[in-house]
Simulated scan of single mutants.
Amino acid sequence: MSDALLTLAGVHTHIGQYHILQGVDLVVPRGGLTMLLGRNGAGKTTTLRTIMGLWQASQGQITFDGRDITRAHTADLAASGIAYVPEDMGIFAGLTVRENMVLAARSGPMDQKRLAWIYELFPALEKFWNWPAGNLSGGQKQMLAIARAIVEPRELLIVDEPSKGLAPAIIGHLIQAFRELKSTHTTILMVEQNFSMATALGDTVAVMDDGRVVHAGSMHELAHDGDLQRRLLGLSLDAHQ
């Protein structure tokens, strides 16, 4: 994880009259899982959406695998090996699980060996393969959203609050799935409010406040320093284990 796959340097984003990102500097090491933490409204989701080209940076530079992607279109970023799981999951409720997966396989028919691996990660998807996605539970929908993102190999997976609103048992299942993904050397950037999940998965961490990254380092350091947690996040992670 010594080299950076994704970097943001001095990134500003305006949405209408609002100046949301105010000089974000972020490094996502290749092959690891970077957690992006911070209070509500700190700019985390805006950072992810700016990386994906859904909102355009008004200043600064975004680099992916040595290439400047600051002005790249979202479709081109997806084709270059970046996948994005938004907070609202982005699945097609009126289509079946299978149809959702087929649409996500951009380069052609789904690889059956990879599909079998996804079934191992998320057995419910095989069980409900021909069900309308809108009939799935919240946890199953999140599994489908992640499965869509990894139906083809990706260099970078960006995930926004995957545990939001889910039961602890489902969160535990997601943790195991992301650990398996990490073992394949997929680089992951994740926004997560569940601090137990963050400490279980994160290799590196960046903490945002008021549209800037105010701390970056190892997740292990933050997880074992209550004073640092309180200073950066206003709470101790120990209270959320």
Rank of each mutant, 00 (worst) to 15 (best):
E155L: 12
V159P: 08
K127F: 04
W117G: 00
A149R: 12
P132M: 05
G165E: 11
L121D: 10
V151P: 01
L115M: 14
L115D: 01
L115P: 07
I118D: 03
A124C: 14
Q140E: 15
I158A: 12
E152L: 02
S137P: 03
G138H: 06
A145D: 10
A145N: 04
I150W: 12
R148G: 01
N130V: 01
R114S: 02
L121G: 06
Q142V: 06
Q140C: 00
G138S: 05
A147G: 01
L136E: 02
F128G: 01
I158P: 03
N130W: 03
L156H: 08
S137A: 01
G138L: 04
R148A: 03
I158G: 10
N135Y: 05
N130G: 10
L166F: 03
Q140R: 04
W117K: 11
R114L: 00
L125W: 05
M143S: 13
N135V: 05
E120G: 15
V159F: 07
W117H: 14
K127R: 15
A116P: 05
I146P: 04
G139V: 07
W129P: 03
I146V: 15
E155W: 04
L166W: 10
L125Y: 08
L125I: 01
L166M: 06
A133M: 01
E126D: 13
S163Y: 07
F128P: 06
E152A: 02
F122Y: 11
G165F: 07
E120I: 08
V159R: 13
G165D: 09
D160Q: 12
K127D: 12
D160A: 11
E161M: 14
V151G: 00
K141I: 01
A124G: 02
S163N: 10
E120L: 13
R154Y: 02
A133Y: 04
W131Y: 14
W117T: 04
G139C: 00
F128Y: 13
I158E: 12
I146D: 06
R114T: 00
K127W: 09
E126P: 03
I150H: 10
P162R: 12
L125E: 04
S137W: 05
S163F: 10
G165I: 01
G134P: 04
Y119Q: 14
E155G: 11
R148P: 04
E161N: 11
N135R: 07
L156Y: 09
A149I: 06
Y119M: 13
D160Y: 12
A149D: 09
G165M: 09
F122M: 07
L125S: 05
